[in-house]
Each structure stands twice: as structure tokens, then as C-alpha cells.
Nucleic acid binder design. Structure first.
Length: 259
DNA sequence: ATGGTAGCAAGGCTA
């Protein structure tokens, strides 16, 4: 089972790109972030025509997440549990069953800038709630993946210019500590081993020629329960997507599970 | 210190 996470940065503006990618790359499951659409305006039919089951947790204008799957999706949860007053659409879960079941959890973590400030407080509170949810799922001792745009640069080697991010909400010590706590629960960062070779990034800013100069950061992650990690065959970044026509500022990040 | 680009949606916010 091939699972990709992809911050699409506007599904309506990216629909041709998305459909072409789904035809070529043919993920079994695609977790999308920043769909910037409501459930009603999401281009569901076009994706269903490509053979995908579609579940969305949308919002007008900003944020929004979705799961596309070639296999049926069951037991969908919309919204990160733990705060009834949180109106931002940043989280969706479902179960997909191949030769065995995998819980797939799609994440669009708050950016948190400017820090310090209320947006950063929201990011840290969201990370605390995510830790609770991940602990609960971990207890089930089943294959599960928490995949998406974490808006966290875990370590200096995950940025081309770490000094440029020193004061940024994506790399502040509290952000990194919270991410490390997620790993300490017992999760595996599926792409971590790949970062032994420098220059593994998933995002390049539209501004200041970041792509042309390869000034990227690694902020899109797959975190695997031990049961999922045992099934993991490989993990990779589809970097060339960033150089195509009208790209998102993120690229797809993949894992393949032996399921 | 600022601005640089992009999407949504129709002005400013978010990133």
C-alpha cells in the first residue's frame, strides 16, 4: 500500500496538477492538506472519476484536509479531538483495509507565526492535543500513520539554511521539543533515515527564488506506530513535482507499507 | 528593515 501526503495549497487551483499526479503516481491513499475548500465546493466528482473514495474536512478559504483512497474508508473522524471550540479544519482520520487495516491520520499543523504570540500558543496547544490523540491510537497496537504538514523542522539538517529559521515558529526549541515528544511516544519518523544524505526537503517558499536555489525545509512527515513501522518497505520524497507547471510550494512525501 | 509569491475571493488574511 502506497501512501502519500501532499500539501496541495488550494485544491481548486491545483485540480489539473492533482489529477495528473494521481493518474501518474497512483497512490493507494493520498492525504491532502490546505484544500482551501469547503466540503461542498471540494471537486469530489473529478477525483471519484479517477477511482478514489473521498472524505473531506473542509473550511472556507483556509486550511482543510482530505483523504483519497482507492480502497473504502471507514470510521472517519473529522477534527482533532480535545477542543470543541476549535473551528479550524486541520485533522481527519479513517481506516483503510488492504490485506490488513491501517489507520490513516491526516494532519495540517498550525504554522504558528509570528512567535511569540497567540498563533504560536495555538500551535503549541494543538501539538499537546495531537500528543494525546497519538497516545490513544498507539494504545490500540495497530498499524497507524500520522501523516501531513507538521510545520515543524525537526533538526538543523532538515533546513538548507537553519540559521534563517532560528526565530521561526517552525524551528523554535518549543516546537522541536513537542515534535520530539511525539517520537518519544514510540513513533518512527519514516523519512528520518533518508536525511543521512543532506538536502532532503519537502517545501520550498514561492518567494526569493527558494526553489531555484534549493533553499528548502523538511516539514511534511509520516509518523508510524511500531506496528506500521514493521510493515514499512520504503519512504521517499517526490521532489521533481516542485519544478513542474504551477506547483504547490510542497511536494508529495511517500511511504510504502507491506499491506 | 523590508520585500519577495501564491490562493481565496473580492479586501485582507494566511502562509
Amino acid at each position: 500500500m502506497k501512501i502519500a501526503t501532499f500539501n496541495i495549497n488550494g485544491v481548486k487551483a491545483r485540480l489539473d496538477t492533482l489529477c495528473g499526479w494521481l493518474r501518474d503516481a497512483a497512490p493507494d491513499v493520498a492525504l491532502l492538506q490546505e484544500i482551501k475548500s469547503t466540503d461542498e465546493t471540494f471537486p469530489r466528482e473529478q477525483l471519484e472519476d479517477l477511482g478514489y473514495t473521498v472524505e473531506t474536512h473542509g473550511q472556507k478559504g483556509f486550511n482543510g484536509v482530505a483523504i483519497l483512497s482507492k480502497l473504502p474508508l471507514e470510521d472517519v473522524v473529522r477534527g482533532l479531538p480535545g477542543d470543541e471550540d476549535d473551528a479550524q479544519a486541520r485533522y481527519i482520520e479513517a481506516t483503510v483495509t488492504g490485506t490488513r487495516s491501517v489507520r490513516v491520520c491526516g494532519i495540517y499543523l498550525p504554522n504558528g507565526n509570528p512567535a511569540p504570540g497567540p498563533k504560536y500558543e495555538y500551535k503549541l496547544a494543538w501539538l499537546d492535543r495531537l500528543e494525546v490523540r497519538m497516545r490513544d491510537v498507539l494504545r490500540l497496537e495497530e498499524p497507524a500513520v500520522f501523516s501531513g504538514d507538521y510545520n515543524v523542522i525537526p533538526q538543523d539538517e532538515d533546513a538548507a539554511r537553519p540559521e534563517a529559521w532560528r526565530e521561526d515558529a517552525l524551528a523554535l526549541p518549543q516546537s522541536r521539543a513537542a515534535f520530539r515528544r511525539l517520537l518519544a511516544l514510540g513513533f518512527t519518523d519514516a523519512l528520518r533515515a533518508e536525511t543521512q544524505r543532506p538536502g532532503l526537503y519537502t517545501f520550498w517558499d514561492y518567494q526569493a527564488g527558494a526553489w531555484d536555489r534549493d533553499l528548502g525545509i523538511r516539514i511534511d512527515h509520516h509518523l508510524l506506530t511500531p506496528q506500521a513501522a514493521d510493515l514499512a518497505r520504503s519512504a521517499w520524497v517526490e521532489k521533481d513535482i516542485r519544478g513542474r507547471e504551477k506547483p504547490s510550494d510542497h511536494v508529495p512525501v511517500w511511504i510504502e507499507l507491506d499491506v
